[in-house]
Structures are given as structure tokens and as C-alpha cells.
């Protein structure tokens, strides 16, 4: 279990991270979501023992990694934001190099290298020089290099930055598979959909602080527990509006230009009823969109800014 208590990091007088409290249980996948410059990389540098916090402490299985970083390092896999590979070496040589650094050798090193190449889908390109790879392939190999020594916790810092959708999907599938296999994951990103897809628990960071944390559902509740249905229809009438209001007394029904907006609690599933009322009132619905709050809305709600600002 990884636990951070009151982490603070100052560079000279500038406080880049303050009062961070986090907890990762075994097998849990946790997301660290925030815009660029929020302090995510500094936080994970402290969590991974690369940087000493100015104050506060990080514990791995109740052992302070400030005092004993080796306790964590042996079991930690880290995927940095940069492509931390040797571009002049082949994929296989890169993996063999990092494997050797982690103490793998002989038959075990060869087997593990082949296993990882298979997992990241680069077996057929193993003897190619890394600098000839596409961005997505380099990112996959970057992940592979962190998995060689079978870590029990994986920290990934924006592993899908700057790659094509196909490679991104491949990487997300690979990470999802790792999580399903029981890997403890700390995943940082400013892509909320990635965090939503992969993580059970999410910490939202902004300006060096954790501004919210919880499960996806808990975080979305911070915005609202309502859903909004946008209806487009022919022959919208006031009779139809009144019928809807009568059927859903908790809802607010209003018309904006040619769109009817119905806001109501999330627990109701109203579409079938709405279509029935429309038929009774000779209204033909052309489209119906059910909108529930996203993590983007949560961030906007908490900071007044969009996540990618």
C-alpha cells in the first residue's frame, strides 16, 4: 500500500505541491487528473522516491520511502512522460538493457524480453532501431521497459501524450489488462476519458493541491445528481410540455429555441415515458440526448476553468 501524508514541495520559495494526501491500496487503480502544471509530475516524483519532499512523508507498506527508498524501488515500475529509451538501440536491446539493470540475466532475461515484446505488440519489430519507430510504438516500448521486472505497482505519467488514436487505444487496452491482472496503478493524465476508463478512484489536482477525490460517481455528484434530456421534435406544443411536467413533477421543463430541455434526477429512466407522451400529443421526436455530468464538468465546477485550459 502506498500512502502520502501532507506532501509539500518547494523550489526555492515557490511552492509547487502542497498538502498532498493520497492512498493506493493493493490492486487498486487510481487516477491523478489535472491540467498541465498542476503538480502531477512533482507529486509522482515524490511518490516514486525520485524527489525528496520538502515536508511530509511517503510510506510503502508502512515503511517510509524517504528513509528507505529501496523498499519501494524494487517493486515499482515507472512509465515517464518522456520516451526514456536509447534511440540508437533496437527494441530488444533496450529491453535487455533495462532488464539487466534490474538484475535479470541469461535465460530469464531472454524469456522476459520476449514476453514483454508480445504484450506490447512489438515482437515483429524487436530488431528494429527505436528511432525508426512511430510515436505510438515508442510509447508502447516505454511501457514495456517498466514491466520487465514484474513490478507490483505501476506509475504512469501521461503515457498517451502525442500519439495517434489507434496507438492510444492499444495502450489503454494494455493498461486495462494489467489492471485486470491485479496491478496496482497510479495513472496521471489530463485526458479525463482515460482516467474514467481505467481508474476506480480519482484525485483531481490543480495548482499543486488535491481539490477533490473519490470514485467517478462520487465526484460527479459534486456537480449535480441531475440529468438533462435534450429533445428535438416536430410540432412541439405547450400541451406536450404540460404533459411532461405533469408526468415528472420533479423535473424542470423549458424550451430553448427548437430544443426542449428536461432536467430531472439521475435515478429516473424517462425516455420510454417521454416517447409515449410525445405519441399521445402527436409530437414526432427526431433526437433525444441524455446528458450526465462528466469529470470535465466536475473540474469546471471546482475551478471555474476547463481541464485543458
Amino acid at each position: 500500500m502506498l500512502q502520502a501524508i501532507n506532501l509539500q514541495k518547494k523550489f526555492k520559495t515557490k511552492e509547487v505541491v502542497c498538502n498532498i494526501n493520497m492512498q493506493l491500496e493493493k490492486g487498486e487503480s487510481v487516477g491523478l487528473l489535472g491540467p498541465n502544471g498542476a503538480g502531477k509530475s512533482t507529486t509522482i516524483s515524490m511518490l516514486s522516491s525520485l524527489v525528496m519532499p520538502t515536508s511530509g512523508e511517503v510510506f510503502w507498506n508502512k515503511v517510509s520511502i524517504n528513509k528507505n527508498p529501496e523498499a519501494l524501488r524494487k517493486t515499482l515500475g515507472i512509465v515517464p512522460q518522456e520516451i526514456a529509451l536509447y534511440p540508437e538501440l533496437t527494441a530488444k536491446e533496450n529491453l535487455a538493457f533495462f532488464g539487466r539493470i534490474y538484475g535479470l540475466k541469461g535465460r530469464l532475461l531472454i524469456e522476459r524480453t520476449e514476453e514483454i515484446l508480445l504484450k506490447i505488440g512489438l515482437s515483429d519489430r524487436k530488431n528494429d532501431i527505436v528511432k525508426t519507430f512511430s510515436g505510438g510504438m515508442k510509447r508502447r516500448l516505454n511501457i514495456g521497459a517498466a514491466l520487465l521486472h514484474k513490478p507490483s505497482i505501476l506509475i504512469m505519467d501521461e503515457p498517451t501524450v502525442g500519439i495517434d488514436p489507434q496507438s492510444r487505444a492499444y495502450i489503454l487496452d494494455t493498461v486495462k489488462q494489467l489492471v485486470e491482472e491485479g496491478m496496482t496503478l497510479l495513472y496521471t493524465s489530463h485526458y479525463m476519458e482515460e482516467v474514467e476508463l481505467l481508474c476506480d478512484k480519482i484525485y483531481i489536482m490543480d495548482q499543486g493541491e488535491i481539490i477533490a477525490y473519490g470514485t467517478k460517481e462520487e465526484l460527479k455528484l459534486l456537480v449535480s445528481d441531475n440529468q438533462t434530456i435534450e429533445l428535438k421534435a416536430h410540432l412541439l406544443s405547450s400541451a406536450f410540455e404540460e404533459a411532461l411536467q405533469k408526468q415528472f413533477p420533479m423535473a424542470s421543463v423549458r424550451k430553448e429555441e427548437d430544443i426542449l430541455l428536461i432536467s430531472m434526477p439521475k435515478k429516473e429512466e424517462p425516455l420510454a415515458t417521454i416517447f409515449a407522451i410525445a405519441a399521445d400529443n402527436a409530437v414526432t421526436i427526431t433526437s433525444a440526448i441524455v446528458k450526465i455530468p462528466s469529470l470535465e464538468d466536475v473540474f469546471l465546477h471546482l475551478t471555474g476553468r476547463a481541464l485543458r485550459d
Binding site: 516514486s48 529501496e70 524494487k74 515507472i78 518522456e82 520516451i83 526514456a84 533495462f98 539493470i101 521486472h149
Partner: peptide
Amino acid sequence: KRTGVWNRLKLASI
């Protein structure tokens, strides 16, 4: 150091 290889090596207890 720029590419992050240095950190990888440090984390591998070098």
C-alpha cells in the same frame, strides 16, 4: 537525464 533514462536507472537502484 532529459529523456528520463537516468531516473529509470536510479529507480532500478543504481
